[in-house]
Simulated scan of single mutants.
Amino acid sequence: MVDFTLKDHYTVQDLVDIVRVLRAPGGCQWDAQQTHESIRRNFLEEAYEVAEAIDQNSTEHLQEELGDVLLQVVFHTSIEEDAGHFHLDDVADGVCKKLIFRHPHVFGDVTVSSTGEILANWEELKKKEKGQATQADAVDAVARSLPALWRAEKVQKKAAKVGFDWDSVDGAVDKLSEELDEVKEAISGHGDPAEELGDLLFAAVNVSRFLKVDPEDALQAACDKFAARFRRVEEEVTAQGKQMEEMSLSELDAIWNAIKHPDTH
């Protein structure tokens, strides 16, 4: 039995102590073997589960998932503490200094009149803080680990800040159509399909940005819509006493269209 006092209510410091016990000799062999790389995906999954709790508007679920994210923060920090690099207070110190530096209108003598000015100042201070001398540096600094749709959106927003952007959504839509034509050409043997598909998706994100639509949310909604309609197609096929594998694509497509446009049937 390890030397640890059980309580009715624990604090952040208790979490730090528990992780230390788990990773120490005599603790948990699995925890002791983990590295930043081995639990990298865990961190991402926990962050997405926080997002799911927010979408569900569930306070109880959110509290639980935030705890899982906090565990990841403490765990990664514990690895670095054992290596003699930094501890949790250093992590807190860094983010506190960052917040103070990026809020001169709160902690300094800068005056702002709108949230737009606040965000503009934030971006400039962020560039200064990270040593980004050019806007290209800012574009390059967008994390490659982001979901590709979000990365594309952030890259485009960075470029737009210096005027490298369409005047309106019309230009973005025209570009989307152009990229679709290039995909068709690539399929017929004139170009790299993967490259052209990437350009098409990038152009689609540009359109979503002009429409102020989160591209990730839009695609998730499309996935949900497809899944719901697919289920209804399968249910209709089953009601006819058949199996989907037995039916032709045209027959399935007819059912799909009937579900998609019920008023026309």
Rank of each mutant, 00 (worst) to 15 (best):
V2C: 04
D3P: 10
T5A: 05
D8Q: 15
H9C: 12
Y10Q: 13
T11E: 12
Q13S: 13
Q13K: 12
D14M: 12
L15E: 01
V16G: 01
D17E: 15
V19G: 00
R23W: 10
G26D: 08
W30F: 14
A32Y: 14
Q34R: 14
T35L: 02
T35K: 09
E37Y: 01
E37A: 13
S38C: 04
S38P: 02
S38H: 06
I39K: 08
R40S: 10
R40H: 10
L44R: 04
E45L: 14
Y48R: 07
A53C: 02
I54C: 08
I54Y: 11
N57V: 15
N57G: 13
S58P: 00
E60K: 08
L62H: 03
Q63E: 11
Q63N: 05
E64R: 14
V69I: 13
V69M: 02
Q72S: 07
F75L: 03
H76G: 02
T77S: 09
I79K: 05
I79E: 07
E80I: 00
D82V: 01
D82A: 12
G84H: 04
L88G: 00
D93L: 03
D93T: 08
G94E: 08
C96G: 08
K97C: 08
K98I: 02
I100N: 13
H105S: 06
H105R: 04
H105V: 00
F107S: 13
G108L: 02
V110D: 08
T111E: 12
T111A: 10
I118W: 07
A120F: 01
N121I: 05
K126R: 15
K127L: 01
K128E: 09
K128W: 09
E129C: 13
K130T: 05
Q132R: 15
A133L: 15
D137R: 15
A138P: 05
A143C: 11
R144D: 12
L146R: 06
P147T: 01
W150M: 06
W150E: 04
R151K: 05
K154A: 09
K154D: 04
V155T: 02
V155Q: 05
K158I: 01
A160M: 07
A160E: 13
G163L: 07
D165K: 03
D165C: 07
D165R: 03
W166S: 11
S168V: 06
D170G: 11
D170A: 10
D174Q: 14
K175F: 09
S177Q: 09
E178L: 07
L180R: 05
D181W: 11
V183F: 14
V183W: 12
V183K: 10
K184N: 13
K184D: 12
S188M: 11
G189W: 07
H190R: 10
G191N: 02
P193F: 02
L200E: 06
F202P: 00
F202N: 14
A203G: 14
V205I: 12
V207N: 09
K212Q: 15
L219S: 04
A221K: 05
D224N: 06
A228Y: 10
A228S: 10
R229Y: 00
R231S: 05
R232I: 12
V233F: 01
V233T: 04
E235M: 02
E236A: 07
T238K: 08
A239L: 06
K242R: 11
M247L: 15
L249E: 15
D253N: 15
A254C: 14
I255F: 15
I259L: 15
K260A: 14
